[in-house]
Amino acid sequence: MRLDTACLVAPKPKVPSMPTRRAFLLAGAMFGVGSMIGGACGYALGATDTTSGDSKQETQIDVSAGLEPTGDSNLDFLRRLALQAPIEDLEAQSPLFLEGIRIHVGDRYLWHGMNRMADRFLARQHTKWPRLAHRVFLQTIRAADEASLPDNGLSLKRKLPELDRVK
């Protein structure tokens, strides 16, 4: 006859993870409050941050004022590109846009478009720009007369060393 050893130690009593109903209600309330605060903060950040990267350092642009007709249909078109069009459209039409900003160098709405392009350039997302457009982009900023530039154009010009580092 064979004798096996038997363990006679009683198992540890299980401590319930939610010992009381009061604790459960407290945890639920904390979760609810946290969600509300987090949601509100996220919404507030998202509502104020409509741009990304360096263009958010620009002083506020009044988009609706910039989209008002100027009497120059070419300028109106360029401003729509700068302010309202998807970035891909602005990039695809960058040769025309860069021609426009050379002519309207004092137009802060167009420089907003340049800042949008600069964000993409600094993020190295300019690979789909038309051939050599990135170089003309830099040349245009470099050649712009500081005395004629609006505040957002001037701040972009001061970022040239940073832009020049992008290959």
Binding site: A85, Q93, P130
Partner: peptide, 9 residues
């Protein structure tokens, strides 16, 4: 989605 108009040349 807004498209700015003229296609790129």
């Amino acid at each position: 989605m807004l498209r700015a108009g003229r296609p790129p040349t």
